[in-house]
Amino acid sequence: MNQQTHFFFAIKIPEETKLMMKKNCERLKEILPFNRWIHHEDLHITLAFLGNAPYENLSNAVDNVHEALRETKGFLLELNKLGIFGKVESPRIFWVDTKESMELEAVRNKVFTACVEAGFQLETRPFKSHITLARKWAGDQHFDKKLLEVWNDLQPDPLIFKVNEVALYQTHLDKTPKYEVKKIYQLK
C-alpha cells in the first residue's frame, strides 16, 4: 500500500520537557479515555503544515525558512492549560497550550510566510499554539470540561522550556514514533 507522506515545520520540544509531559500523559490516560495518545517523541508545536509537498516547493521552503530564521533568537515558552478541539461532548483533539508569546508568534509568522513564498497554500485559521496530546474521545460518557482543570494538579509548578530549534518533520503513519526530523534550524 502506497501511503502519502506529509511534511510540516514545528517547534521542536526539548527531550527533558517531552519526558515530563510523558509522565503527565501517563496519569491523564488513567482518567481520560482517548483512542490514540501521542507518543512523547512526537510532541511538537506545528508552525506550518505542508501536506504532501512537491519536491521543488519543499526545497524552496527549506531554503526560505533557513533565511527567515537566520537571526532569530531562542526564547522561553510556558505550558498553560488543557483544551480540546471538536465537539465538547466528544472531542477529536486533546491538547495543552502555551502562554501567549510574542516570540513564538514572530517565529510562526516567519515560517508561515517563508512557506507561502515557496508556493504552499497553508491553513488560514488563526494560529493556536498547542501540543496535541491525544485524539478521538472514546469515553462511554460525554467528555466533562471539568477534566481540563487537572493540569494544575499534574503540573503544580510552571513547565517552562527553552525553544532552541525549529524542525522540518516528515510523517510516517506506519511507524511509532511517526514523525521524523528531516532538518533542524538552530535558533541563536
Rank of each mutant, 00 (worst) to 15 (best):
M1R: 08
M1K: 12
Q4H: 00
H6R: 04
F8K: 03
A10E: 03
K12T: 11
P14F: 05
E15A: 12
T17V: 08
L19P: 01
M20Q: 15
M20I: 15
M21P: 09
K23L: 13
K23A: 14
C25P: 12
C25I: 12
R27Q: 14
K29N: 05
L32S: 09
L32C: 07
N35Q: 13
R36S: 14
I38D: 03
H39S: 11
E41N: 10
L43Y: 07
H44V: 04
H44R: 07
L47D: 01
L47Y: 02
F49A: 00
L50R: 03
L50T: 02
N52D: 15
P54V: 01
P54I: 03
Y55R: 15
Y55H: 15
N57Q: 12
N57S: 15
L58S: 00
N60Q: 14
A61H: 04
A61P: 02
A68T: 09
R70P: 04
E71M: 12
K73D: 10
G74M: 05
G74H: 08
F75V: 04
L79P: 06
L79W: 02
N80H: 09
G83P: 01
I84C: 04
G86Q: 07
G86Y: 02
E89V: 07
P91K: 03
V96K: 00
V96N: 01
D97C: 12
T98E: 02
E100Y: 09
S101V: 03
A106Q: 15
A106G: 14
A106F: 15
R108E: 11
K110N: 11
V111K: 00
V111C: 04
V111F: 06
C115E: 04
C115A: 05
V116I: 14
V116L: 09
E117H: 14
E117F: 11
E117R: 13
A118H: 05
G119R: 09
Q121R: 15
E123N: 12
E123L: 09
E123P: 05
R125L: 09
K128E: 08
I131P: 10
L133Y: 07
L133A: 08
L133F: 09
A134W: 03
A134I: 01
A134K: 04
A134T: 03
R135G: 07
K136E: 14
K136N: 15
K136C: 07
W137A: 01
W137I: 00
G139E: 07
Q141M: 11
H142I: 10
H142N: 13
F143Q: 10
K145E: 14
K145S: 14
K145H: 09
L148N: 03
L148A: 04
E149P: 00
V150W: 00
W151S: 01
N152Q: 12
N152G: 08
Q155G: 07
Q155I: 07
P156C: 03
P158A: 10
P158Q: 04
P158F: 03
K162Q: 12
V163K: 09
V166I: 13
A167C: 13
L168V: 12
Y169Q: 01
Q170I: 04
T171Y: 05
T171W: 01
H172W: 06
L173R: 13
Y179P: 04
Y179A: 08
E180D: 10
K182W: 11
K183F: 14
K183R: 15
Y185H: 08
Y185E: 08
Q186E: 15
Q186A: 14
L187K: 06
K188Y: 14
